[in-house]
Each structure stands twice: as C-alpha cells, then as structure tokens.
C-alpha cells in the first residue's frame, strides 16, 4: 500500500507530452473513422434494401425467393473454389517450406505472390477465352460417363462457361492468399517440435503431421476464411465467366447455372431503375451479412483451436 500510493501520484501528475497527445488523437480518430465507415455502409444497405424487402416487387415474387438462387450460387461457387484451393494451397506451402530446395522455394514463393497481383478482369478473360473452351470436352465426357452422379447430370454446357469453370477461376484467384499465409505459418513451426518428432524416428511426412500441421491449424483456418471472403465477394471474373440462368442446382457441368450476388449486381446495376435498384442493394445486404457471419465463425474457430506453449 505504501509503495502504491507514490506511484499513483506520479501517474496523476505525469506531464502531458505533446507527442503522446497528438499520437493518441490521430489513432483514436482512425479507429472511430473505421466504425463510422462501417456503420455508414450498413445504414445505406439497410435503408435502400427495405423497400425491396417489404415489396411489392414487379414480378410478384417475394424478395427472398428472388435472392435465394443468387445466395445459393454465391455459396456454392465459393464452396467449390475452396474445396479445390485449400488442399492445393496447403500442399504448395508445405512443398515450399519443407521439401523444395531453397532456390526453387524462393522462386516458387515469388511466382505465387505474382498470382495475387493479377487483376481479376484478367482472370475473367483467361477463364472465358482459355479455360472454358479447354474444359468443355471434359464436361461433356463427365456428363456422358459419370452422369449418374448428380453433380454431373447431363446435358453438358456447350460453351464450358459453367459454375465449375467459375469456381476454378476463383480457386486460382484465392490460391495465392491462402498459400502465402500458410507458408508464413508453416515457417514459424517451432524447430524444437520438428526436431522432437524427427528424433522419435518420424519421416518427413510424419513430422509434418505431428508438428507442422497441428501448429498451423488455426492459421490454416484463418487463411482459408480470408480466401473464402475473397471468393464470396469476387465480382468481375465470375460476371465474365459464368453463363447464368438463375437456377438452383448442384449440377456443375450444365448450362443452367446459378449466378452469384456480386456478379449479378455488376451485370444488372447499369440498367437498373426504381425498385430493381433496391432489390440489387438488398442482395448486397445479404452478401454483407454472409461475409460478416463467415468472419464471426472463423474468429470463433480460431479462438477455439489456437494452442499456446508451442514455443
């Protein structure tokens, strides 16, 4: 008690240093601005969406019946992209950090980072001009020979501009984010843990399973969620590649594809007027809510799986 009292007085009488005051003001303003921007976006979305949500809409449908196929398409394409991208990204990151010779590893690292620098419109062009025609024969084959699997029910698309093509483009686009983050996390695996497993007679792969992957678990989830966020919100590439029909279907090789929220907004907004504008903004609100939910879930998972004491 006797020692605490003088400490308190010093703190109370500490001079207000100008640099501290300025820095505090600047950082507080920055923090508040973020909140204002977020609140502004949310208010705008809600206010503009309300007329569409309470209706009536021109073609007598409810807003939710209209937005559901778009929501489905957004989730389904992002899901397909993640199924392809996450295992691939983890494999590439492991190869770079634990298998490749150092020279090759750094070249590969740069190449992956370069993928992230390509604008999405280029991915769209590539998807429409190269990937779709390239994949079309494969889709036809899948529909013909594996058509009994619901995913590949015939008829196959004649252009190749299916949701699977869009998902492949998305997967390539999110790959660099996930790979780069996973690589950083795998590099941070405590050397002690790696050596512990090697000293027990683990092979390289067993060492990765015992030390690297458990340590990187929450990081893998976090990076996947970041990638998922990008896949959900990606607009341009999907708008260009996907030939959509607004259907709700799990078929990935056909021509009746669901569209995504973001692509639909980009394609329809220029000609929209009146209530259609409110409908599009309403779908934007749905996308906003989905992304918010995804982030909340990821934070929860990360908090649950983070382990301390590894280093």
């Amino acid at each position: 008690m006797t020692t605490a009292a003088p400490a308190a007085t010093t703190r109370a009488s500490a001079p207000n240093r100008p640099a501290d005051v300025i820095f505090k003001a600047v950082s507080t303003t920055a923090g508040v601005l973020i909140l204002i921007a977020l609140a502004g976006v949310a208010i705008f979305l809600v206010a503009q969406a309300v007329p569409a949500i309470i209706g009536p809409l021109p073609d007598d449908d409810s807003f939710w019946a209209w937005v559901w196929p778009l929501t489905f398409g957004t989730l389904w394409s992002a899901f397909l992209a993640m199924v392809m991208a996450v295992p691939m990204a983890i494999a590439i990151a492991l190869f770079i950090t634990h298998f490749a010779p150092r020279r090759l590893a750094s070249i590969l690292g740069y190449a992956i980072d370069l993928l992230a620098a390509i604008p999405s419109v280029i991915y769209g062009l590539w998807g429409i001009a190269v990937l779709a025609p390239f994949m079309q024969p494969a889709y036809a084959w899948l529909a013909e020979n594996l058509g009994w699997i619901p995913l590949f029910s015939p008829p196959a698309s004649g252009t190749g501009r299916t949701i699977l093509t869009a998902a492949i483009v998305l997967a390539v686009m999110v790959l660099p984010i996930i790979t780069a983050l996973c690589r950083e996390i795998f590099l941070q695996t405590p050397r002690l843990n790696e050596e512990a497993s090697l000293a027990l007679g683990a092979t390289r792969w067993e060492m990765i399973r015992m030390a690297v992957l458990p340590h990187g678990r929450s990081g893998i989830i976090a990076s996947s969620i970041l990638g998922l966020g990008r896949a959900l919100g990606e607009t341009m590439a999907v708008a260009m590649v996907l030939a959509s029909a607004g259907a709700v279907t799990f078929v990935v090789v056909g021509s009746q594809n669901p569209s995504t929220i973001a692509a639909n907004i980009a394609l329809r907004f220029p000609e929209a007027h009146g209530i259609t504008v409110n409908m599009l903004i309403g779908s934007g609100l749905v996308l906003f809510a989905i992304t918010l939910l995804v982030n909340a879930i990821s934070r929860w998972i990360i908090a649950k799986t983070t382990v301390d004491g590894g280093r």
């Binding site: 405590p190 090697l198 000293a199 027990l200 340590h215 301390d308």
Partner: peptide, 17 residues
C-alpha cells in the same frame, strides 16, 4: 537410426497439441 536412439533436447518440447 533415430528409432533406436532416443534424444532429449535442451528445452522441453512436448507436442503442444
């Protein structure tokens, strides 16, 4: 070789997970 010859390190390193 490592399966026959055990090793204990400078700092304790149980697998944290």
């Amino acid at each position: 070789v490592r399966r026959q010859i055990g090793m204990v390190f400078q700092r304790p390193n149980p697998f944290p997970t």
